[in-house]
């Protein structure tokens, strides 16, 4: 049976989600040092039962990866944590309702660039949704969010002039650039609805090729 639960509760029980890798996090009960153990359960909203997570039973860490259990993003979930110490226990403490589709954070896109004398070609790749194993089927977040768009920033390092582009497909050709000049490209993902956006990727710098004609006449 349940022990008398007089231990303070775990605090700040919440999901942290990136690209739908959904990890439950919490803080240790107030005033407890080492030695606290935890167990975790979760439930699908609207379905009657709580399900224990065996891999997160009697653990002393303060997180538990529930990505597998919450991978159906057409469902919503609750998770709950209970603490144990020296024969005492806490109450179960629940998360707010978790909606993987709207509550996940999205990583920036992968940016690859190539150049000619007067243009830069940019190819953007959206991150993949979390998957159970590397061998598992890859699902791009583009499939999860069909309205996904990219915001692209292009900086002329010499003049410090910057352009912004908002595109829906994943390639962009920037024409009419100066030969032999360094340009830096950075990109961000934006999902119009449900409203989500990633941070900007780190800058990828590349130089346009030198103008062959100017080389010959000199």
């Amino acid at each position: 049976g349940e022990l008398y639960c007089s231990l303070p509760n775990p605090r700040n029980v919440h999901f942290e989600s990136v690209n739908m890798k959904n990890v439950l996090h919490w803080s240790a009960p107030e005033g407890t040092g080492d030695g606290v153990l935890y167990k975790v359960k979760y439930s699908v909203y609207g379905v009657g039962k709580w399900i224990r997570k065996p891999e997160c039973r009697n653990i002393n860490r303060t997180w538990c990866d529930l990505s597998s259990e919450t991978s159906d993003y057409e469902e919503q979930y609750y998770a709950s944590v209970k603490a144990f110490l020296n024969g005492r226990c806490s109450d179960w403490v629940e998360t707010a309702r978790f909606n993987p589709l709207t509550d996940t954070k999205i990583d920036p896109p992968v940016v690859s660039v190539s150049s000619t004398e007067k243009s830069i070609a940019i190819i953007l790749t959206a991150p993949e949704k979390w998957k159970r194993s590397p061998a598992g089927e890859s699902v791009s977040l583009l499939q999860v969010y069909p309205g996904l768009q990219y915001n692209v920033s292009v900086l002329n390092k010499k003049t410090k002039k910057r352009w912004f582009f908002s595109i829906s497909n994943n390639t962009l050709l920037v024409p009419w650039l100066e030969p032999g000049t360094a340009y830096c490209v950075s990109a961000q993902i934006r999902v119009p609805t449900p409203l989500l956006h990633s941070g900007f990727s780190k800058e990828h710098c590349i130089s346009t090729l030198k103008d062959k004609t100017s080389g010959e006449t000199a």
Partner: peptide, 15 residues
């Protein structure tokens, strides 16, 4: 709003 709904076992739209 969701915090005001303590019932986890029933969904109006999804059940």
């Amino acid at each position: 709003i969701q915090a005001r709904d303590p019932i986890r076992t029933l969904s109006i739209l999804s059940y």
